[in-house]
Design a protein around this nucleic acid. Structure first.
Length: 602
RNA sequence: CGGGGCGUGGCGCAAUCGGCAGCGCACGUGCUUUGGGAGCACGAGGUUGUGGGUUCGACUCCCGCCGCCCCGACCA
């Protein structure tokens, strides 16, 4: 079910470019400089620019505003525009020459209640989404302790809380993979140069991003070893001996591993030089069967994205320009982030016989003819942690779907006197016992009682930053009436609830919360999806609030490139459920048969 | 690679004309606190990126190196 089918019956349901989206007063963009990363000549041996823990946001003082001057009037808009585009400014002097400071201060707690701006115009500690989405993202990742920067440029350290999120989606996907008949295997980190270069398009596509090992054992290697950017070549080479007959097919393999792609511009989780992922590699006797496998892989991704991560996705075919190097075609799922930009969330490739031919894999078919098997490969990476953050988060921090949340419920005791403390502790102890047996969709309930010696308010903010779906406040007043106050992270709806019945209530509440997140994300995306027919309309929307654009496109690479050059948007997918529909290409007016999704993307 | 900017406790920043390296947060201890980011007191934490030079004296001035950030030559 895609947005096409939903909107199709009444074309009028498509939202045109509303005025609201196209002219945002007071939020000027820096002219001629779309919020896209710069590109550089790729020199493999050279280092990539770093995502560093450098400063990004001006943190005003909380308790002593008089010490630091306010941002001078007139500066803020400009500053905001600059920050949008250049989130990694290390330090900036106050343009007016006043001794104002702009810098990143991890010591500041995260903002309460969606980070309202105080009267003085100061923002609270995490950058607001509306002000600077990349800045918000960085703040959340670092402050929620999902990840840290590493001493190696472009790489990241995934911290326990972030890794737990990854483990949850990894385990869920692994269940899908095994259920559909695949076996996990391991192949080496190093790929001999000669192997990597066997498939022509593949080399060309990956070469700029490959990191090479040239020395080992104290001397230069006779043959350089690539640190795998992906494993197609080494697997094809290795399995050629395993495949002799059609009876050996299909061969359905999957690897959970790390790969290295020397990226020029990196972002925590979204694009790192080294990342964790799963890569499935399969070999089939017929093209039809391989095509079905491509769909099987994509279906697993759709399920994990929507059912597990509560991220609605569009499914479709990539344009030739966006196709995996060496593949015949690439299917992908695309998700919308809360800044209305697109994120490719998983790809499944039809490799045809390309890699099999390059590696010399042959099998004897039923008809006694030697043939090359058809291959597929599909991958899903730690980037999805970033997708989860950006698809649901708000100004207070993370909003996690219960299925992946490392903690689904946090209990905050509240008391003043020792007597109260005992009463609250007693009630919580009883409650804890009942919660131990609670089963949720994603396993036993993951909960914690926060007995730290901090104020309740501090704890609320602490756990909201970390996206814990449900919070239970238990104070003396509650205990007296056998209740607690249950608060939902996503909308902060508070509700008194009897402690005795909580254990039975929770699985349903969590499932409902999970559904609500998916619904919310879907409405958000649909409201930001527009049907457009001209380049002008596209620019108007993209320069306004942004969104997904369904536009006619003739299919030529030149026109695709031109759209990208003029609007910053690229083709994301040609959705499977896009109806046949005549139209004129937004660039050259040649006939288009279906609409394509264009968007600015990560 | 070209242009610009910057390296000072964990983080964010000061240090006037070259004169004892400071502040906030975070951290530790104690007491008072706890229904939306608590307060006070005490305390710990530094070879100012690095190598050289000038000087009675260098965070400060000069030169080299290293590293980082931004912009540019358009990219699965």
């Amino acid at each position: 079910m895609g947005i096409w089918s939903r909107y199709q019956p009444s074309p009028s349901a498509w939202r045109g470019p509303s005025k609201k989206c196209t002219s945002r007063r007071g939020k000027p963009r820096t002219p001629g400089c779309p919020a896209r990363c710069s590109t550089r000549v790729v020199v493999p041996a050279r280092a990539a620019p770093m995502m560093r823990k450098s400063g990004r946001t001006w943190r005003p003082p909380k308790r002593s505003p008089s010490i630091r001057p306010r941002r001078p009037p007139g500066v803020s808009g400009r500053l905001r525009a600059i920050r949008l585009l250049r989130p990694r400014v290390r330090r900036r002097r106050d343009p007016a020459g006043a001794p104002g400071r702009i810098g990143y201060d991890t010591s500041r707690p995260c903002s309460p209640r969606g980070g309202p701006v105080s009267q003085s115009g100061f923002v609270s500690s995490i950058t607001r989404q509306s002000e600077d989405f990349p800045g918000w993202y960085n703040d959340v990742v670092l402050k929620a302790e999902l990840a840290s920067y590493s001493p190696v440029r472009g790489c990241m350290i995934i911290r326990p809380y972030g890794y737990a999120i990854w483990e949850s989606m990894r385990d869920e996907l692994d269940r899908h993979i095994k259920r559909t008949g695949h076996s996990n295997v391991y192949f080496p980190l190093f790929v001999p140069r000669s192997l990597l270069e066997k498939e022509a398009e593949h080399v060309e596509g990956f070469n700029p991003q490959v990191a090479w090992v040239t020395h080992a054992g104290g001397k230069e290697l006779d043959e350089w070893l690539a640190i795998r950017p992906t494993s197609e070549t080494i697997i094809a080479d290795s399995v050629k001996d395993w495949i002799q007959s059609y009876r050996d097919l299909p061969l359905l393999l999957n690897l959970w591993n790390n790969v290295v792609r020397w990226e020029l511009r990196t972002r925590l989780f979204l694009r790192t030089a080294e990342f964790l992922w799963q890569e499935a590699h399969t070999f089939h006797a017929t093209e039809e069967e391989a095509a079905e496998e491509v769909a099987t892989g994509l279906a697993a991704y759709v399920s994990v994205a929507e059912d597990w991560l509560a991220i609605p996705v569009l499914q479709g075919v990539k344009s030739p320009a966006e196709t995996f190097p060496g593949a015949v075609y690439t299917h992908a799922i695309e998700a919308m982030m809360r800044d209305r930009k697109a994120l490719q969330a998983g790809t499944s490739h039809m490799l045809g016989q390309n890699f099999a031919k390059a590696a010399g894999i042959e099998f004897l078919d039923r008809d006694n003819i030697r043939k090359h098997p058809w291959g597929t490969s599909w991958g899903f990476s730690t980037r999805m942690v970033g997708a989860t953050i950006m698809a649901h988060g708000d100004d207070s921090g993370l909003v996690l779907p219960p299925n992946v949340a490392p903690l689904q419920l946090v209990i905050v005791p509240i008391f003043r006197t020792e007597e109260d403390r005992r009463a609250v502790a007693g009630a919580i102890e009883t409650l804890e016992a009942s919660l131990r047996d609670v089963q949720t969709v994603s396993g036993p309930l993951r909960f914690k009682v926060d007995w730290r010696e901090e104020s309740p308010g501090f704890k609320y903010n602490h756990w909201e930053l970390r996206g814990v779906p449900l919070r239970l406040e238990v104070g003396p007043r509650d205990v007296a009436s056998g209740q607690g106050v249950l608060v939902r992270r996503v909308d902060r709806v508070k509700e008194p609830i009897p402690l005795a019945g909580l254990a039975a209530e929770l699985p349903g509440r969590l499932a409902g919360y999970q559904r609500d997140l998916l619904d919310r994300a879907r409405s958000f995306r649909d409201a930001a999806t527009f049907r457009v027919d001209t380049l002008g309309e596209m620019s108007e929307i993209l320069d306004g609030e942004g969104g997904f654009l369904l536009a006619p496109w003739c299919g030529s690479a030149e026109c695709e490139k031109e759209v990208s050059a003029k609007t910053g948007a690229t083709t994301r997918v040609i959705p499977f459920d896009a109806p046949d529909e005549g139209g004129a290409c937004v660039i050259d007016g040649r006939p288009s048969t279906r609409r394509v999704v264009f968007a600015r993307a990560y």
